[in-house]
Design a protein around this nucleic acid. Structure first.
Length: 426
DNA sequence: TCTGGGGTCCTAGGACCC
DNA sequence: TCTGGGGTCCTAGGACCC
């Protein structure tokens, strides 16, 4: 069997770093990026981490004086910018390997199998330098014989200054020593619950986890846990996924900027979310037949609580937005109860398949062969060309009092002519 | 005043069938 | 008193990821 070698390249503090690229005066400032509705902090620069703030902190809980004193800069999340920067990073990475798995917006696995004759630490440094040159974003590179060990190497690269952001665990004389340094909760695939359970059983670091019998692991952590332990031992069990897999479900949901009480507003919001979800469905040439709608009040508030959901199955799989808006509105009328302050609604599309696999119906045309597809394609074309929401559904309303808050949004520097940065001579 | 959004996979248990 | 056995499919819930 041929040797397996994989690198994990991960952008450091991705969202915060993206903002810094276009705002040079933020270079050494503590920067935080907020979630939708400017609710919680989802990404932090190193400077902000050092001040003791952590991911998930509610923005309103950070003291005003503290923000002023340390000159903390907080921004609404600008996914248009981050998505475009991500594409640039991935494009650069693809020149370093024939097999690239884009794992998330800021991470990719690169197969380096067959590259072992090279000095891979040096190769990692080249990757890091090139991404920096092309995008201005700092990355860390971890190299190992399995994806899980590459993840660990990446963590090591980030946390130890001497590594300078690149670490190859296969080159280290004592792999077990590295594994002892990794707490179980920091292993890829071990979350809060498993970490607690493992600690209760006296297993506190990655090395100790490799020493546990297989059947115990499988019993306690399912087959996934067992796979993970084998990966820690150096046996590759999680393959690279090169091909982009079509989605099995698509969700669109958002918390409201302000609480919503009226059915009409909920219906508008759900119509809007439907149009987002179904557009995504079409972009993958898929159709869906199950529509699930859910709604809930604000669980953090000490007021009457209500949460519910319901589903509707369409007579035939579709990607025609109005089909979904009708279904979703029917559901929301059914589960709506007056007298509550709603915080969130959402829609999920499921039972998804490729458009060409749609079963035929004797009495009506399938989406693929229908005027509905023509209309949708036309609408998508216009919105893609002229900017999203140029054509929208009346059912999504106009005033949109339920819309989310994004009060600290930065410009879309790389995707909008209007926002393109201007360099001025002084 | 203010607490995110979008995904995947596995398992247990129930319904149903012969 | 005793109450089959084996299989499939579906769903809810729980774990995880970023």
């Amino acid at each position: 069997m041929s040797k397996n070698t994989v690198a994990l390249v991960d952008c450091n503090n991705f969202y915060a770093s993206c903002e810094k690229v276009f705002n040079p005066h933020l270079a050494d400032k503590p920067v935080g990026i907020l979630s939708n509705n400017d609710g919680i902090i989802v990404a932090l620069s190193n400077e902000l981490k050092k001040l003791g703030i952590s991911r998930g902190t509610a923005a309103f809980k950070i003291n005003k004086h503290f923000i002023k004193k340390h000159d903390i800069k907080l921004f609404s999340s600008n996914y248009t910018l981050y998505g475009d920067m991500s594409a640039r990073v991935m494009n650069t990475l693809s020149s370093f390997t024939p097999d690239l798995e884009i794992y998330s917006i800021d991470e990719a696995f690169l197969s380096l199998s067959g590259f072992e004759h090279l000095d891979l630490t040096d190769y990692g440094r080249q990757i890091k330098k090139t991404v920096w040159l092309h995008t201005g974003l700092p990355v860390s590179v971890g190299i190992g014989p399995t994806k899980t060990l590459a993840k660990i190497a990446n963590r090591f690269a980030k946390k130890h200054n001497f590594a300078e952001g690149v670490f190859d665990i296969t080159k280290h004389p004592d792999k077990d020593k590295i594994l002892r340094w990794i707490e179980v909760g920091h292993i890829w695939g071990v979350g809060r619950q498993y970490a607690k359970m493992l600690c209760r059983n006296g297993i506190t670091n990655a090395y100790e986890l490799t020493q546990v019998p297989d059947n115990w692991v499988q019993k306690k952590m399912t087959i996934i846990g067992l796979r993970l332990v084998k990966e820690l031992r150096g046996i590759s069990c999680i393959d690279l996924e090169i091909d982009i897999k079509p989605k099995k479900e698509i969700v669109s949901s958002k918390s409201f900027g302000n609480p919503v009480t009226e059915l009409q507003d909920l219906m508008e919001a759900i119509s809007d979310y439907c149009s987002v979800a179904v557009k995504k469905l079409r972009s993958q040439n898929q159709v869906a037949s199950l529509v699930i709608v859910f709604l809930s009040t604000n669980r953090f508030k000490n007021e009457p609580q209500y949460a519910n959901y319901a589903k509707v199955r369409l007579p035939l799989p579709s990607a025609y937005t109005p089909d979904f808006i009708h279904a979703a509105n029917r559901i929301i009328k059914k589960i709506y109860r007056p007298g509550y302050k709603y915080k969130k609604v959402g829609v999920m599309l499921a039972d998804i398949m490729h458009q060409s696999k749609t079963p035929l119906d004797f009495f009506q045309p399938t989406y693929l062969d229908d005027y509905r597809k023509v209309i949708m394609d036309c609408m998508d074309d216009i919105n893609n060309k002229m900017g999203s929401h140029k054509i929208t559904y009346a059912s999504a309303g106009i005033k949109k009092p339920w819309q989310m808050k994004r009060e600290k949004l930065t410009p879309s520097y790389t995707t909008s002519w209007k926002h393109i940065p201007v360099v001025k001579a002084i």
